[in-house]
Design a protein around this nucleic acid. Sequence first.
DNA 1: TATAATGTTTGAAC
DNA 2: AGTTCAAACATTAT
Length: 242
Amino acid sequence: MEGPSLVILHEEAKAFIGKKIIKVSGNTKTEKERLLNQKIIDIKTWGKHFLICFKDFMVRIHFLMYGSYRINEQKENPRLSLKFKNGEFNFYNCSIKFIEGDFYSQYDEETDVMSDRWNEKKAITALKKLPKKSLVCDALLNQNIFAGVGNIIKNEALWRIKMHPESFISSLKPKQLKQLAQEARTYSFDFYKWKKIYELKKHWVIYRKQICPRCNIKYTRKYCGNPARLTYFCSNCQVKYK
DNA sequence: TATAATGTTTGAAC
DNA sequence: AGTTCAAACATTAT
């Protein structure tokens, strides 16, 4: 689940702010009992993190590859289930973690590509500080720089800016660094827009596709970067900066 | 039906 | 000591 999907979840989840948890269950190994009788004071997202905030701590939910949730409905084997006087909030196949402190002391909104406070210059500065041989495909997935960007956004954004995923960050000119940072955010918002109208896959140009619409030739499909992730690119129009 | 994957952490092995 | 790698988690679309 990538950043834009978390923003959509956040919109649905906001209704639980101010509500008290009256029953907790689920197969999480964390100390979930701690949540009983607690009042949700805020709900936040940062990148791929979904955060339910309480007075002195937060519950961080990460959906990884297959995580899901249900609001006011349920399915089998919740990892965590929160019940309220009116309604319930259920999470499945996700990673659950307690974080002490408040949101602002733990998270920097300026590195979240979906945030109003996204700071493009900060991302560019961070890119320049990466080790010499860092690849563009890895940089985009680096959650400390582009929180919320996942493999779909990575592939689509690189195709749009005609940049080869195995380009070296250190070989990019200032203009290209800017373009990279900009498109990470721009595509994320397109992702959000399309996901909301259930048209996300319809707009994929490269991810899980075969033919480059610009060049009319077959895409390359290769495991790139470290850790290796399946990457789609057009070897004709995506320039490799080396 | 088999395959591959919207992701990250952990810890063993080298 | 730093890196590399597999395992773990477990679902769903193609």
